[in-house]
Design a protein around this nucleic acid. Structure first.
Lengths: 337, 337
DNA sequence: TTGTACGCGTTATCAA
DNA sequence: TTGATAACGCGTACAA
C-alpha cells in the first residue's frame, strides 16, 4: 500500500539513502558488496523510484507534450507514431493530447502540460492552422515558447517565428493538379476543407495557380468547401452529380473527403476514373485500402513526426537549428485517376 | 528562464507561501484584499504551480496510463478516444503508450507509468491476449495490480482475476457466421489472426460451433491464420482463389484482413458479394469507407474505452465494482455479404 | 567508500 | 486570517 522509498531500502541495508541513490543512478563508486546487498533488497521489494520526486530535483521529466486535433483521422496517429519511435530512441516519452480541434481544450492541455513540466511540445492542428486565430491564443503559445521549445507541424503562428516542420502542401497540390491536367482533364473541381484553415487556403492557391499555368480558367462554382470528413465529400459530390456541367475530375482536401466523394460517384452508377477521376491528399492507409485505390499525395506522415521530434530534441539540448524544415510531397498515382 | 515559484509570489505579495497556496487551492478563507493582491501577481507573471511538487505531496497525479498495441490500427484510437472523453469528465488525463505489440516495450512502459505514479492503468493488446504468455510477464501485471487499479480491455490474465471490459467476441462471431449461413453459404473460410492470440482462438471456437449448430462440417483446410493486416488478407485470399473448391464466403479476423481479402477478390475480376462474400470484424471507419461497404461486427469501440475508464475511475475511488463488463456486439450488415 | 544535511516546489498542520 | 515549518521522495554537495 504505502509505497516503498529509498529510506526503506537504506534502513534495510544498513546504509544511508545517499548510497542507495548512488547504486540507483550509478553516480559514484560503491563497494561491490554493498552494491549487491542493496540491489538484492531493491529486487526483493521490486522498488521503483518515484519519478515525480526525481524530476523535481533533476528538473527533467523526459516528457514531450503532443497536441493533435483528432485521433480518429488516421493521419495524426501516423504522425505521432513516427514521433514516438523517434522519441524512444532519444529517451523521451510522449504525452499525447487529443484536442478534438477545440481551442479551449487546446488551452487546457497546454496548461496541463506546462504544469506537468514537459520539456518540449509538438503542436498539430487547431489554432496553428487557423486563419483568424484570436491574438490571445497566439500569445498563449508564444509565451510558452519562451520557456519551453515548441515545434509546429504543418502549421504556423502568423507574425511569430517558430520552429516548424511541414510538407510542402502547395507543391503537393501542384503535383496532383498537374497530374490531373496531364490526364486530359479540363474541368477539375475542388472538394472539402474549410476557409478558416490555412492549409485549405494554401491548397486552394496552388489549385488556382496550376490552373492558370496551364491556361485553364478558375471557376469558383466548382470549388466547394465544407470540412474534412467522408460525409462532407459525399454530400458535396451529390450536389455536383446533379449539376449540368459536372467536372470530370476532383481534387479533394484529404483522403477522407475523397472517399466520401467516391462513394457518391459509385452509388450513382458512374465509373472511377473513366467517368469521374478523384484524387485525395495524405496517402493515409485508407487510400490504398479503397477500391479503386486512391491517387493521392504522400505527406510522409511518419517522417513528419520523427523529424519534428528530432528537431525538438535538438532544441531541448539548446543546439542551434534551422527554423523551417520542409518535406517534399510525393505523388502516388493509383487507380482513381 | 528559472521557473517562478510560490515563494516568488509570496515575497512579492508580502505574504507567506501558505497564503499563496490557500488562494491557489481555495482551501481556507483568505481576506479578500490579500486574495486579490495575490491573484494579480499570479496573473501578472502567469504563474503555474508545478504539478510535480504538487503531486508529490498530494499523492495524486490524475494520470491514467493506457497501453495499446498499435495506433495505426484504427480500432485502438477509437477505443482510447472514448476513454479520453470519459477521462476528461472524470478529471483524469490519459498517458497514451504505443507498445507496438512488443512485450518488452510493454514492460518498459509499465515501469515508466508506475514510476510516474499513474493512478490507474488501461491495458489493451499484447500479453493480455497472448495464449502462451510467460508467467513472469503475467506476474509483472499482477504485482502492479496490488498497488494500482488495472482494467483489461478485451483480454485477460489466465489464472488471475482482473477487472475487465470486453465485447463478447464469441457471440459476435456467432452472429456474423449465422448471417453468412442464412445467406445460403455452406462453405465459409476463416481468414487471418494468430494462433497465439486468445481472441483469435475465441473467434475460431465460435466459428466452429456455429458451423456445427447448423449441421455444417468444420474443414480446417479453409481456416488460414496469419496476422491482422491488410497484406495478410490479400495473401491468404490469393491462395484460396487458385484452389479448386474455394469457399463462397469468408469471415475475417478484423476489417483490415477483410479489406485485403476484398482487394484480392476484386483484382481477380470477381464480384463481391455475388461471387464471394466477405465479412469483417470491428466496424472501424474502414468498413463503411470501402466499396462495396463491408459487413462487419461492431465492438462499440468508443464505448469500450469509455466504460473501461468509468470502471477504472470507480476502482480508484475504491468503490466495489463487478469484475467483468461485457458489451454486446452488433451485426452491421452492409454490401459485402 | 560512505553519511549528513539541504534543496527541489508544493501542501498541510499547528500556532498565533 | 495568517505564518512557520514539517512533510513528500529523491539527488548531491560536502564532510568524514
Amino acid at each position: 500500500m504505502e509505497s516503498i522509498t529509498v529510506y526503506d531500502i537504506a534502513r534495510e541495508a544498513n546504509v544511508s539513502v545517499a548510497t542507495v541513490s548512488r547504486v540507483l543512478n550509478d553516480t559514484a563508486p560503491v563497494r561491490t558488496s554493498t552494491r549487491q546487498k542493496i540491489m538484492a533488497i531493491i529486487e526483493k521489494h521490486n522498488f521503483q523510484p518515484n519519478a515525480l520526486a526525481r524530476s523535481l530535483v533533476n528538473k527533467k521529466t523526459g516528457m514531450i507534450g503532443v497536441l493533435f486535433p483528432d485521433s480518429s483521422n488516421m493521419f495524426f496517429p501516423e504522425v505521432f507514431g513516427g514521433a514516438e519511435r523517434a522519441a524512444q530512441k532519444l529517451g523521451f516519452t510522449l504525452f499525447l493530447c487529443n484536442t478534438f480541434s477545440n481551442f479551449s481544450r487546446e488551452s487546457e492541455y497546454l496548461n496541463l502540460l506546462c504544469e506537468r513540466q514537459v520539456e518540449g511540445l509538438l503542436f498539430m492542428g487547431g489554432r496553428i492552422n487557423s486563419r483568424h486565430c484570436p491574438e490571445q491564443l497566439v500569445q498563449e503559445v508564444v509565451d510558452i515558447q519562451k520557456r519551453i521549445p515548441i515545434v509546429l507541424i504543418n502549421g504556423s503562428l502568423p507574425g511569430h517565428p517558430c520552429h516548424r516542420v511541414k510538407t510542402d502542401e502547395y507543391a503537393g497540390t501542384q503535383l496532383i493538379m498537374q497530374h490531373l491536367i496531364d490526364r486530359g482533364h479540363r474541368s477539375i473541381g475542388f472538394l472539402g476543407g474549410n476557409a478558416e484553415t490555412t492549409t485549405t487556403m494554401e491548397k486552394l492557391q496552388a489549385y488556382k495557380s496550376t490552373l492558370g499555368a496551364n491556361g485553364l480558367p478558375f471557376r469558383k462554382q466548382i470549388v466547394r468547401l465544407g470540412d474534412f470528413s467522408m460525409e462532407c465529400g459525399r454530400k458535396l459530390m451529390e450536389q455536383f452529380l446533379t449539376m449540368p456541367n459536372c467536372p470530370t475530375a476532383f481534387l479533394c482536401i484529404n483522403d477522407y473527403v475523397a472517399i466520401g466523394a467516391m462513394k457518391s460517384v459509385i452509388s450513382h452508377g458512374l465509373r472511377i476514373p473513366e467517368d469521374i477521376a478523384i484524387a485525395g491528399f495524405d496517402d493515409s492507409q485508407l487510400a490504398s485500402a479503397m477500391n479503386p485505390e486512391l491517387t493521392t499525395i504522400s505527406q510522409h506522415s511518419e517522417e513528419l513526426g520523427s523529424q519534428a521530434m528530432a528537431l525538438l530534441s535538438r532544441l531541448i539540448e539548446k543546439e542551434k537549428v534551422k527554423k523551417l524544415t520542409v518535406l517534399e510531397p510525393k505523388l502516388i498515382v493509383r487507380q482513381s485517376t
